[in-house]
Nucleic acid binder design. Structure first.
Lengths: 201, 201
DNA sequence: TTTCTTGATCTGTTTTTATATATCATAGAT
DNA sequence: ATCTATGATATATAAAAACAGATCAAGAAA
């Protein structure tokens, strides 16, 4: 119900990860040493308000004092906004839907193979893709991967398929990150947070 | 738009005053030395988050991190709740209305005599009464004072009336604060914050 | 294998809070 | 004139953050 130091630490960490920022990147944005950020996020430090303000601003958060009775309302309000860590990447809805569907497929798959490490890697790989601009030229690739995975569902022989898909998506991800995509939208191929946070107050 | 250290300092001070707490009283509630509170409120100190949390809790406030885009909504929401510093004193609506009317009367009077120091004192005296339990036995006194003040409105000879009313209300206030009221509700004659904040978390 | 990124950790130094205690001037009340 | 409450300050000490810089291990990429 009430916020404590560790709650705030967790919130900061969650906000940073939602923005796909490393501690060192945030360090630059906020003007706070990385070593200090590490300590703060792990709750080992009773930081000063100025530091908290700096970090919050860099993360698009604002420090406020609200009356106790309005806390619940404020919480739900904030939850709705915070819970959309995936920013506008300019992806078409087709790509977006394909990614969402693929995510669900792997999630379903995970229910039958909870300990599959390969699968977990694939899941995080897909998750990362949602932060990148994925050209439509990859749409078919994504859809095909989804189809294959669905076909192997519940089969023990799915290992090969998952492995193949994983390496395929790793390659895709790296192409996008490094702007080596063969798509015409090479200029837009950047981490999402560069798109809408280029000009900060 | 964005909160800074001094903004927070001001907010703390405003919250404390809205609760009619002295720095020493808050010091006891929050477990923070009065000297430190003085420094904090004057913005001379970059306090630690733990201290801020302690003070906030004692004042019925909660420290939260909200996304930038939800800030306006949160602000208006908080304003509505904070902007009612007058707590439930158990006064009857008759007394409440009389006080409100009296407040308005002095405000109107103030427009014609903006520099009148006596009048200003009377206004703050009335304001203070709203924090106290005022027995109905004083209703007539209040109403009469209001009538007299309204009668002298715009007259240069109002000085005497204001002075009389002022000393009268000072006496009333002191009676109430010290529980010396001749009213039967002597037991309830306490500062309002004792009534609803006796049990804190 | 080699390289790079990430987050955690260590060392040493500087700065500042936090705390306890006391004092002071002011304003109000008696 | 006296007594009291208030907020701002002063001093001294202890504890801790802030900072800079280096390092380390794990994971992933080349």
């Amino acid at each position: 119900m009430e916020y404590s130091l560790t709650d705030i630490a967790e919130k900061l960490k969650a906000a940073r990860e939602a923005k796909n920022l490393s501690q060192r990147q945030l360090s630059q944005l906020a003007g706070v040493p990385q070593s200090h950020i590490s300590k703060i996020e792990s709750g080992h430090v009773d930081l000063r308000v100025s530091s908290l303000i700096q970090l919050s601003r860099a993360l698009g958060l604002e420090l406020t004092l609200v009356p106790h009775n309005t806390l619940p309302a404020v919480k739900t309000m904030a939850r709705g906004a915070v819970h959309s860590p995936v920013k506008n990447t300019g992806n078409t809805s087709a790509v977006l839907n394909a990614l969402k569907r693929l995510e669900r497929t792997t999630r379903d798959l995970g229910r039958h193979h909870p300990t599959d490490k390969l699968l977990a890697q694939l899941q995080s790989q897909i998750k990362e893709l949602r932060h990148l601009r994925v050209p439509d030229s990859y749409l078919e690739t994504i859809q095909q991967a989804d189809k294959q995975l669905r076909a192997t569902e519940q089969q023990a022989a799915h290992l090969e398929t998952v492995g193949n898909t994983l390496s395929e998506f790793r390659h895709l991800r790296n192409s996008l990150v490094h702007g080596l995509s063969e798509s015409p939208a090479a200029e837009l191929t950047r981490p999402a947070y560069h798109l809408d946070e280029h000009d900060d107050g």
